[in-house]
């Protein structure tokens, strides 16, 4: 456990950005959010997201993890503190960012390929090019044959993969995932976690992912930010540090130790809140 330590945590093989203007890290500095009705969703969160890392925000409902993700993505503004994007020469404008949500949010009247191409279409990319890019992204998420089908004809896991492909089609530098696999069964979720890891290794973007699954956090996270509710806050930053997770990892003692570590941090933080109504 090392709270807020600044460190580059780019796994081997990932194309680390080398240009002078490149993003090095995202700094979440004392970020708090009080809603208009006075509810304190997030007290104060501080940690760093190294560029190219897969950072997971994990915690129970009401710990402010989704609020924090939205603030990192610019969908919401902190009432205190700031989110900064830092390069070698100081603060940068927000990077190209894509979101995937807990629901696939596909347009039911559009084919899967047209759904995946939607962000490019909205940005004015010509039809031929955007369909090519959508097709190659569908291939990456193993949906190459499903492009012409409608979302209603797909399984939940396939819809979620289409949603991830849509997020990645713009080649974002920062991918924000809000409990993307939370509505899926455990086995499908494990498969999609492996898919996410291989996409991350291949494409090298920075990923911040929100989940309430400790097992998922320990498995995919190069860095895990553990959060607790009432009020929402960061209680620990853990690095499980599994370089190349494979499905067999989930059955090892090392993995059990990593999840136990996260659970311990959560349990310690939750004790005082346990007595509250």
């Amino acid at each position: 456990m090392n709270l807020g330590a600044a460190e580059h945590h780019v796994a081997a093989g990932r194309p680390a950005a080398q240009q002078p203007g490149a993003l090095r890290r995202i700094e979440v500095a004392g970020v708090g959010r009080v809603f208009e009705d006075g509810f304190e969703a997030l007290a104060s969160a501080s940690f760093e997201v190294p560029a190219g890392s897969l950072t997971v925000l994990v915690g129970p409902s009401g710990c402010g993890k989704t609020t924090l993700l939205r603030m990192i993505g610019g969908l919401d503004s902190p009432t205190s503190g700031a989110v900064r994007f830092l390069g070698d020469a100081g603060t940068l404008p927000p990077p190209r960012t894509a979101f995937a949500f807990q629901e696939p949010r596909l347009l039911p009247w559009r084919s899967v390929a047209a759904n995946v191409a939607l962000p490019l279409e909205l940005a004015g990319v010509p039809r031929g090019e955007r369909l090519d890019r959508a097709a190659s992204m569908l291939e990456r998420v193993q949906l190459a044959d499903a492009g012409r089908r409608l979302p209603g004809q797909l399984s939940g896991g396939m819809r979620m993969r289409a949603s991830i492909a849509r997020a990645l089609v713009t080649e974002p530098e920062l991918l924000l995932l809000d409990e993307p696999f939370g509505a899926l069964d455990e086995i499908t979720r494990h498969a999609l976690d492996d898919m996410l890891l291989s996409l991350h290794a291949r494409l090298g973007m920075t990923v911040v992912m929100v989940t309430h699954s400790i097992v998922e956090a320990a498995y995919v996270g190069s860095q895990v930010v553990v959060m607790a509710p009432a009020p929402g806050r960061v209680v620990a930053t853990v690095r499980p540090g599994f370089a190349q997770p494979t499905p067999a990892l989930r059955a090892t003692p090392e993995f059990a130790a990593a999840t136990a570590g996260i659970m311990r941090s959560l349990a310690q933080a939750m004790v005082p809140a346990g007595g509250a109504p």
Binding site: G73, L75, F101, E103, R105, L107, L118, L122
Partner: peptide, 23 residues
């Protein structure tokens, strides 16, 4: 949720109407 998707992707008001709200 779909409106938010269009906002996140910086859709214009006209795009949102034609590609989302009308269908």
């Amino acid at each position: 949720g779909l409106v938010e998707l269009f906002q996140v992707n910086r859709a214009t008001r006209l795009q949102r109407w034609w590609k989302l709200e009308l269908p």
